[in-house]
Amino acid sequence: MMRSRSPWVLPLSLLVALLLTLLPIPPALQLLRPYWLALVLAYWVMEDPDRVGLGLAFVIGVVADLVVGTLLGEQALRLVVITFILQRFRARLRFFPMSQQALAIGALLLNDRIVALAVRLTLGEPPLASLAWFSPLVGMLLWVPVFMLLDGMRMGGWGRR
């Protein structure tokens, strides 16, 4: 198991994912915004499971709930579910080709939408708009570039002179 050569990459990548979540985008595209925290957390669960697990997913989710202003615990629940599934299937997923990994991440993000829908319906809120169901597709398409960027940074290929 190869450890991160740059200890700052994990916290920095999670901070950037949180900032991307807050980045203002046009209202028409708001529902297509990928779940950046899930993508970054998925990378770290797969590549550095000794440092990233259910506890960190919960803490990051609660911080995201506080920062974004969603129901306290909603994103924590969603990120814990994603992390749990990834931990369960990590040994297989790591050896999938990138295209199959992207499909698996897309399925996880679709599952996340189902969990978010269940939370909304439990609270008596209206269901997600139909356009929001395309967000997992956007996340699936972004998986390979996110993976390559974080892998390059983790392995120390970035920032060296």
Score class of each variant (00 low, 15 high):
residue 2 M to N: 13
residue 4 S to K: 00
residue 4 S to T: 06
residue 5 R to W: 06
residue 8 W to G: 12
residue 8 W to A: 12
residue 9 V to M: 03
residue 9 V to W: 04
residue 10 L to W: 10
residue 12 L to F: 15
residue 12 L to E: 10
residue 12 L to D: 09
residue 13 S to C: 03
residue 13 S to G: 08
residue 14 L to W: 07
residue 20 L to W: 10
residue 21 T to W: 03
residue 25 I to L: 14
residue 28 A to C: 00
residue 28 A to G: 03
residue 29 L to G: 03
residue 29 L to F: 13
residue 30 Q to S: 13
residue 34 P to Q: 02
residue 35 Y to G: 07
residue 35 Y to I: 02
residue 36 W to K: 05
residue 37 L to G: 11
residue 38 A to W: 01
residue 46 M to F: 05
residue 47 E to V: 05
residue 54 L to P: 03
residue 54 L to N: 00
residue 56 L to Y: 04
residue 56 L to G: 04
residue 59 V to Y: 12
residue 61 G to K: 01
residue 61 G to A: 00
residue 62 V to W: 12
residue 64 A to K: 05
residue 67 V to Y: 07
residue 67 V to R: 10
residue 67 V to P: 13
residue 69 G to L: 13
residue 72 L to N: 09
residue 72 L to W: 13
residue 74 E to P: 03
residue 74 E to V: 03
residue 78 R to G: 06
residue 81 V to T: 01
residue 82 I to V: 15
residue 85 I to W: 15
residue 85 I to G: 02
residue 89 F to H: 14
residue 89 F to D: 14
residue 92 R to V: 14
residue 92 R to Q: 13
residue 93 L to T: 14
residue 93 L to R: 08
residue 94 R to L: 13
residue 96 F to S: 08
residue 98 M to L: 14
residue 98 M to C: 08
residue 98 M to H: 11
residue 99 S to Q: 11
residue 99 S to W: 14
residue 100 Q to S: 09
residue 105 I to Y: 11
residue 105 I to H: 06
residue 107 A to R: 04
residue 108 L to T: 02
residue 111 N to K: 00
residue 112 D to T: 02
residue 114 I to M: 12
residue 115 V to F: 01
residue 116 A to I: 05
residue 119 V to N: 08
residue 120 R to V: 01
residue 122 T to S: 08
residue 123 L to S: 06
residue 123 L to T: 05
residue 125 E to I: 00
residue 128 L to C: 00
residue 129 A to T: 08
residue 130 S to A: 14
residue 133 W to N: 06
residue 134 F to S: 14
residue 134 F to M: 11
residue 136 P to W: 03
residue 137 L to M: 11
residue 139 G to H: 07
residue 140 M to L: 15
residue 143 W to K: 04
residue 143 W to V: 04
residue 143 W to H: 12
residue 149 L to S: 12
residue 152 G to T: 01
residue 153 M to L: 14
residue 154 R to C: 01
residue 154 R to F: 01
residue 155 M to I: 01
residue 155 M to F: 11
residue 155 M to S: 10
residue 156 G to P: 15
residue 157 G to C: 05
residue 157 G to F: 10
residue 159 G to A: 02
residue 160 R to C: 06
residue 160 R to H: 09
